[in-house]
């Protein structure tokens, strides 16, 4: 069977968040409210619902590098998490063909008391690599971090920059078709930033699709060929990055 082309299809996506306040998290208060006369069906009354994304539709195909722009709380990160498969749509659907690599949080699955090597293994396993794949990549990852003998030491003895190097090296070691990034990850000293930049570029080249959420418009101009503006959970149409200025000039809808 021919593998399906790398693509992302989002149709009428609506995502609502129940926001549970402190009260709603307490079973005792929950029961008290029910006992005092709140109807059982309304037991959720202590929690409000926030619509994070409403009626969003777009399609991306191989070669598309989409930049997501918008204010804080406009739904960019939520959209990335939905694309990673963590958040389930409340309405509509998300279809992704291809191997997804979410680089949303570098510290995911990192254990400070474990050694560098152990962390590479653990993080690699979480990212979906088999034990053998990790063995094959271990040398390359180790070399890339430039940490040498420090890899055998616990992560908590590392400086912040060294930790970031390691996390970055592992997170970017996966062969992905779809790369999801929340802000461009720039870490370490100037030297490392340069090679990190190279590596990210090659990753973007290899990956069929990149979705990058960022506030830095220059960055988006540099890496993306398409942009979408999110505003209060509503997405603008996906346009070419050449039209970024026009998109920014449009008044906010909300």
């Amino acid at each position: 069977m021919k593998p399906p082309m790398v693509s992302i299809k989002v149709r009428d996506l609506t995502l609502r968040f129940p926001v549970y306040g402190v009260d709603a998290k307490s079973l005792k208060k929950h029961l008290a409210r029910v006992a005092v006369g709140g109807r059982l069906g309304r037991a959720h009354s202590g929690s409000a619902e926030v619509t994070a994304i409403s009626n969003l539709s777009f399609e991306l195909k191989a070669g598309d590098r989409l930049g997501l722009i918008g204010h804080n709380g406009s739904g960019k990160t939520t959209l990335l998490r939905a694309l990673s498969g963590a958040y389930e749509p409340d309405e509509g659907e998300i279809e992704v063909s291809g191997r997804i690599a979410p680089l949303l949080d570098l510290s995911l699955g990192i254990d400070p008391s474990a050694t560098g090597l152990e962390n590479i293994r653990l993080r690699g396993r979480i990212a979906g690599l088999s034990a053998r794949e990790i063995d094959e990549k271990m040398d390359e990852i180790g070399k890339f971090t430039g940490l040498g003998p420090f890899l055998a030491m616990p992560l908590k003895t590392y400086s912040a920059g060294m930790q970031a190097r390691l996390a970055f090296a592992v997170a970017t070691a996966v062969d992905a078709d779809v790369l999801l990034m929340d802000e461009w990850i720039a870490v370490g000293d100037a030297d490392f930033q340069k090679i990190a930049h190279q590596r990210l570029l090659s990753l973007v080249e290899r990956a069929g699709i990149l979705v990058l959420a960022s506030h830095d418009h220059d960055l988006i101009r540099l890496y993306c060929n398409k942009v979408m503006r999110m505003d209060g959970g509503i997405g603008s149409p996906v346009v070419s990055v050449k039209n970024l200025d026009e998109l920014l000039a449009q008044p906010s809808e909300s």
Binding site: T14, G85, E88, E91, I94, E95, V96, R99, G128
Partner: peptide
């Protein structure tokens, strides 16, 4: 394969 090669997430049906 590793991370879902094909993923379809929909609203409740």
């Amino acid at each position: 394969m590793q991370i879902a090669e094909h993923m379809l997430r929909t609203g409740s049906r």
